[in-house]
């Protein structure tokens, strides 16, 4: 919509789990974004809490830097499977 900024919508389906990105919508202001998010993404009890965030407020990593940005070095020793424990050692 002309001049209606884009909001990203996050919903917590129930208490005890994290808010999760579900999609986006256009709205004139944050309050209406919340109401529209309820109508658009919670028509069947999908949520108990909604966050709306102006899409322009999000800083994202660049996909072309993916490898260098996320895995600068092989660091297998950070994973439990890197370590050899004799099979007779229990509860490890």
């Amino acid at each position: 919509m002309k001049g209606w900024p884009l909001y990203e919508v996050f919903i917590r389906p129930r208490n005890g789990v994290a808010h999760r990105h579900v999609g986006s919508l256009h709205a004139p202001d944050p309050e209406m974004a919340l109401e529209l998010a309820r109508d658009l993404y919670c028509r069947r009890g999908e949520g108990t809490s909604i966050w709306v965030v102006p899409a322009s407020a999000i800083t994202a990593s660049r996909p072309e830097d993916k490898d260098a940005f996320f895995e600068p070095l092989e660091k297998e020793y950070r994973h439990p499977s890197h370590y050899n424990i004799p099979p007779d050692v229990k509860n490890m």
Binding site: M1, K2, G3, W4, P28, D29, M32
Partner: peptide, 12 residues
């Protein structure tokens, strides 16, 4: 649509 935007601007 225009009124909603004008209202948002006024509130801001």
């Amino acid at each position: 649509r225009e009124a909603a935007l004008a209202y948002a601007e006024k509130r801001r």
